[in-house]
Simulated assay, not measured.
Amino acid sequence: MRILASVLGLLSLAVALAAYGARYLPISGHPTLIAAAVAPYLVLSAPVAVLLLALGRRWLLTVVALAVTAALVWVYVPRFHSPPVDASRATASVQVRVLTANLGMGQADPPALVTLARDTADIVAVQEMTPEAADGLVAAGMDAAFPHRIVLPAPLASGIGIWSRHPIVDSGRIDGYALPMLGARIRIPGVVVDTTVLSVHLAAPWPQPIGQWLQDIAQLPDTLREVGQAAGAGAVIVAGDFNATTDMAPFRRLLGQGYADGGAQAGAGLARTYPGDGKWPPLLGIDHVLVKNAAAVSATTVVVRGSDHRGLLATLRVPVDMTSS
């Protein structure tokens, strides 16, 4: 019994160590991509290793397993806990609700999405918006609820757009990626400096070759740095389908230059958005809202009827005047 427990404990510890290491390894192909994607599930083997090694009376290995478990708790528990706001350091802010929704190559149900957006959001970033999907959203009342927009419908996965309740004062297309992106300056009432909003969609790394995704996600930090510099003291909101989870090292490199992942900041856990078609429970959090000079106070996934993704809805605090900070 002790031998069996020891062997199983060693196997569990090896799996836990692999899961921890996968978060920091460079991603060069599908094996390392998949290892990082499933890491949140594999880490459950760490406490199992503690129990089994203790049953096997392998005390030194038990201590190692406890250390690995503690390290993984330090990594994952903060994702499920939103830190309290320090009232003494809080600045005046305006709440802005942002919804990002991948339309599943235009298959999302337009009336359902318009109802969802109208009831929950102030800014909507959409991806995979076909011309037919754009027409359907307009016919369902999207423009009535969100009178300001910049949209680039295109076949299959290439369409993208931003709808806003607040005026869009400047906008432009961001090229150089496998799929086009959009940027807009939005004038939020009460906020001194206009807010920059990006709707992004990185190439999918699976099942096709991973090369284009690697190129996109390696280039995006430079784009975010340039956008942040251009925004100055204004808030920046980057919403969309990154085709990457927070356990992938290339994704975490996006969080330089003052950016934060809104889901993690708000304690939303894994914020799993894919697959979202209802046939299987969502397993991966690949849709995100990143923020700079702003903070997420809540984030939750929402059903986008007809799409193979769930949407991500984040409530943000945008400071009234960062220039005085």
Rank of each mutant, 00 (worst) to 15 (best):
V191C: 13
S324A: 15
G176F: 09
E226W: 09
T323M: 11
G183K: 12
P180N: 00
A90H: 11
I123C: 07
W213L: 00
V75D: 14
E132M: 07
L42Q: 04
Q219L: 13
V15H: 01
V48E: 11
H309K: 10
Q257G: 12
Q229T: 12
L283G: 11
V193W: 01
G269L: 12
S93E: 00
P40Y: 14
V227S: 06
D261H: 00
V193K: 11
L11S: 12
Q212R: 15
A268F: 08
L198D: 01
L113Q: 12
R272F: 05
P155N: 08
W163G: 02
A144R: 15
R58G: 10
L254I: 01
I162D: 02
Q208E: 06
I34E: 02
A268R: 05
W163S: 03
M129H: 07
M105S: 12
V200K: 10
L8R: 03
L53H: 09
V304H: 02
G21R: 07
A101E: 04
G190L: 05
D222Q: 14
K292S: 11
W213T: 01
A92D: 11
V227I: 15
R149K: 13
R310L: 15
G29P: 11
T120D: 06
V200C: 09
I174H: 11
G278R: 02
